[in-house]
Each structure stands twice: as structure tokens, then as C-alpha cells.
């Protein structure tokens, strides 16, 4: 049995990039040097914010239309879909999934982005949705372009979409990035290479999903997300009434 209030499985830090990954230069001064203190789950960790569908607008998961002004954005039209599950394989229902990205030219609609590729007047670059009762989510967008960044002199990020997910407890909070199958920049990227386990990094690469493409309209990519699971035990392990 898994209870909605049971403790989380220990996070396997070996599949995550460590804090200090010097090839990604900004991490050098922004990584704690002391060991983290391990905490067993209390109510502060097993609970987390909940969100209602009514808080979202009807176009929040449609980046092709949610900032369209005088037309639709330019670029490769794609459909992105997948499930949010926990480590025990259960879909996580009704959880908030948010995403943001550059436009087709690799330019972000952000006051700090000075890249010379132009802004697309019809593209905002962010969206959000809530998973259905099975943990399924989807959105449509424009495939983002790669962009240069000041790491090494000639560093280019692979095309990617940032994801933010909640789960049902605050200890599941996760931000990650989705990459696209076949992109030759992926294995040159210090953020991807910061993940010590290559097979774990591969799970950030969304395969092309022709079966979900809409003929004569848009291609599709599938990106499943796994959040931490909760301990399964034969015994009642409730935090209730501590």
C-alpha cells in the first residue's frame, strides 16, 4: 500500500547533477560546499501546494495561440505530451506542469536576453497545464532554437524546453529540461554532461512521436516525467496524529 501521506523514498542523488559541475561555470560559486543534512519526511515535506484547473486560462497550454497578436508564431509546430508518474509507476493526477522556452531563433522574451536573434511578436514562450486523472499532460508550441551563452567562448545550448513540476508533496519539487531526439548539441552541453549517469541523462531526451503527430499540421514529441515515489509498506505508516 502507498498512502498519500507516507514518506518519500530517499532521493537517488547519483542520477542528478551534483551542485558543483565546474564545466558549467556558474555552478562554481553557486554550489554549497557543505554536505546537505538529511531529513526524514514530516508533514512539511509530504504536503505541498495544490492547484485548480479553474486557475488556468483556456489557452495556457497552447503556446501557438497564447501570445498570438497579429498572426501565429514562426517555427516548427509541435505537440508535446507525456505522463507525470512517481517512481512506483503511478500517474500523478491534477498536478501543475509549467514550461518555458526560447522562440524558433533561440531568443527568449526576457528583458535580460540580448541575443541578436529577433523576438517573435506572436510568441511568448511560456505555458502551463494540470495533469488529468492519469497524470497525462500535453501542450502545443514551436520547437525552440539553440542559442549561444557565455560559458566557454563558443558554447551553444541544445534546443530545450524548461519544465517545472510539483507532485503532491513539496519534497517532489523538480525543475528540469527536455531535449530533442537527434540534436548534436546535446552531448556537448555541460548541463547535460553534469549528470553523472549517461542513461539518466538520456531520459531527458524526448523521442519524436510520429504516431501523435497531426498530419499536415504538426509533429509530436513525447516526454515522460518521473517524480519521487513514496515508501510502500505493509504496515500503517501514517504521519497522522504524531
Amino acid at each position: 500500500m502507498t498512502h498519500a501521506d507516507s514518506e518519500f523514498l530517499q532521493r537517488d542523488r547519483s542520477i542528478h547533477p551534483p551542485a558543483f559541475t565546474p564545466d558549467y561555470k556558474t555552478s562554481v560559486l553557486r554550489s554549497p560546499r557543505r554536505a546537505m543534512l538529511s531529513l526524514q519526511s514530516s508533514l512539511s515535506e509530504v504536503t505541498g501546494p495544490t492547484f485548480g484547473r479553474s486557475e488556468l486560462g483556456p489557452l495556457d497550454n497552447d503556446l501557438i495561440l497564447n501570445y498570438a497578436r497579429e498572426g501565429e508564431p514562426i517555427g516548427e509546430r509541435i505537440f508535446v505530451h507525456g505522463h507525470v508518474r512517481d517512481e512506483n509507476g503511478r500517474g500523478i493526477p491534477h498536478t501543475l506542469v509549467e514550461f518555458w522556452q526560447a522562440n524558433a531563433g533561440g531568443r527568449y522574451r526576457h528583458r535580460n536576453d540580448r541575443y541578436l536573434a529577433p523576438i517573435d511578436p506572436n510568441f511568448g514562450g511560456c505555458g502551463r497545464t494540470i495533469t488529468d486523472e492519469n497524470g497525462f499532460y500535453y501542450f502545443r508550441t514551436i520547437k525552440p532554437g539553440p542559442y549561444p551563452w557565455r560559458n566557454n567562448l563558443n558554447s551553444w545550448r541544445p534546443a530545450h524546453i524548461h519544465f517545472s513540476v510539483f507532485g503532491s508533496g513539496f519534497a517532489q519539487r523538480l525543475i528540469t529540461q527536455m531535449y530533442f531526439e537527434g540534436d548534436p548539441l546535446i552531448w556537448r552541453d555541460p548541463m547535460v554532461l553534469g549528470i553523472p549517469d549517461r542513461s539518466a541523462a538520456e531520459r531527458l531526451i524526448a523521442p519524436l512521436d510520429l504516431g501523435a503527430a497531426v498530419p499536415l499540421d504538426m509533429l509530436a514529441y513525447k516526454f515522460d516525467i518521473v517524480l519521487r515515489g513514496r515508501q510502500q509498506t505493509l504496515f500503517e505508516n501514517k504521519l497522522q496524529g504524531n
Binding site: A102, Y108, R128, H162, S164, T176, V226, G229
Partner: peptide, 23 residues
Amino acid sequence: RLRETPSQTAGPYVHIGLIPHQA
């Protein structure tokens, strides 16, 4: 057992997605 999706940095433009007014 499935394995957790690896984390990646939120990057410099996190505001776009999560607090767009600040972007």
C-alpha cells in the same frame, strides 16, 4: 522501479515560465 527524472538548472530565464511579469 522507475527512476526520478534528473534535475536541470532553472537557468537565467526562469522568470519567463514561472513569473512572466518579472521577465
